[in-house]
Write a protein that binds this DNA or RNA. Sequence first.
DNA 1: TCAAAAGTGTTCAATGTACACCCATGC
DNA 2: GCATGGGTGTACATTGAACACTTTTGA
Lengths: 259, 259
Amino acid sequence: MPDKKSLLDKMLSMEDNFLPNISIDCVIFGYHERELKILCSRTHKTSGWILPGGFVRKDIPIDDAAKQVLTMRTGLDGLFLKQFMTFGNSDRIWRNSPFYPELEATFGPDFKKLKWISERMVSIGYYALTDFIKVIPAPGLLDYECKWFNIKNLPVFMLDHKQIFKEAFKSLKLHIHTEPIGLNLLPQKFTLGDLQALYETILEKKLDQRNFTKKLMTIGVIQKLQEKKFIGGHRSPYLFQFDKKTYFNAVKNGIELAF
Amino acid sequence: MPDKKSLLDKMLSMEDNFLPNISIDCVIFGYHERELKILCSRTHKTSGWILPGGFVRKDIPIDDAAKQVLTMRTGLDGLFLKQFMTFGNSDRIWRNSPFYPELEATFGPDFKKLKWISERMVSIGYYALTDFIKVIPAPGLLDYECKWFNIKNLPVFMLDHKQIFKEAFKSLKLHIHTEPIGLNLLPQKFTLGDLQALYETILEKKLDQRNFTKKLMTIGVIQKLQEKKFIGGHRSPYLFQFDKKTYFNAVKNGIELAF
DNA sequence: TCAAAAGTGTTCAATGTACACCCATGC
DNA sequence: GCATGGGTGTACATTGAACACTTTTGA
């Protein structure tokens, strides 16, 4: 991490380029080997965790600001990204949160000179989707570390970031029938078990294997490949890939895969 | 309308109480006698139209700010209100819009001193639902008039307010199965025809009368009353009302009434 | 040989969907 | 008597949902 004083000076001098009182927070969902995770960071070894976020330069649209946060943190471009909700309670002020003392302990007493620390922030929430194996998590400017957490086992968050995650997950659940979520979370080639596990994780319920497979085949959104995946200890499952045309069409009209 | 100069001075002096660069826009849907309308206003006789909006006082949550806009404009309290999207393109600047000259012609050259006129605004969109007969449309501080427009016959809007309406309507369509939309748009007592017409308007398609009625009755979300409605020239239809408990339950789990 | 995951069909129930005529009323 | 919207039932097709055993493989 660069020297804290010069970092702070740089941030202070940049503030005028950004819209005040507005931030972006991204819930970056990553899926791999049947685990659904989100990317979180923290500013020092003992602090609470936060979602990757950023600010909005005065000359760029909020969607682009969110894209920049996503690209910086994942190293990837063109990921699926969707605005889902804006958070604007009047107590969204870092300076007043119980976590502030440890922030000040890390960054020094001048930290509160930053507007986004001392003033109320309205945060625009986005969620993103990716196969997390492709990602090399990059800590933000102020971060001590940045890593994936299984959504079943999340750490303690600062401010309202837990609630932001919850709303993002709620949107994910709702959108699973109407957005290309499978396509964006899975690798290009995947097994039926992987796909079903993804649906079960997002919908938080068990699905019937035979009905699930049958429905997928009837709709024709995935294609069986000749390759099999080696998983060791068991019968080798066939790999599949999405038929993008059929899939996008199905999703546009809403598909119901869960029983 | 009060004197424009003193109005402007008052607004300028108030700006510090509000979050800069953030506004609220409300798409207020009103339904009555089989017409779905939204409330619009304009600042003078020849200007483009805008959606009712406002700003966020530094000490109140965004949801409450939206509630205040809604109450001021409709005179009603406790209406259904839902945040649906935030609009943040970098060209959301009144000062730069082709409509600005007519605003300046109305309010004078000092009008651009207002931050929300000259600076980029990020606007949080909410939609509200009401039976519009209960509403006495109240113009905002700067408005020349304020009235209902059928959504099939909307006027020319300023800035991106047309797009805001479109997104609100899209949300309304999506939410019709999962939010108590019928209950909030219809009067307490209504006919089956009224309810069906509402669904047809929102979903933009014709529904089969017998199947619609049958489904409603099977689910039990509405109750038949002994009263009939006088509609003249025709057989008098029975009035119905929602069985609130059943309805809220059905909506929570998602009801599918459209075929 | 055991454990773990893959793969595969049938039956029954529930729901969706198509469809048409008479009724009541006021003009 | 006619125009207008209200009110009502049946039959068929589609989809949903429940259900269990064999195969493959590595440890």
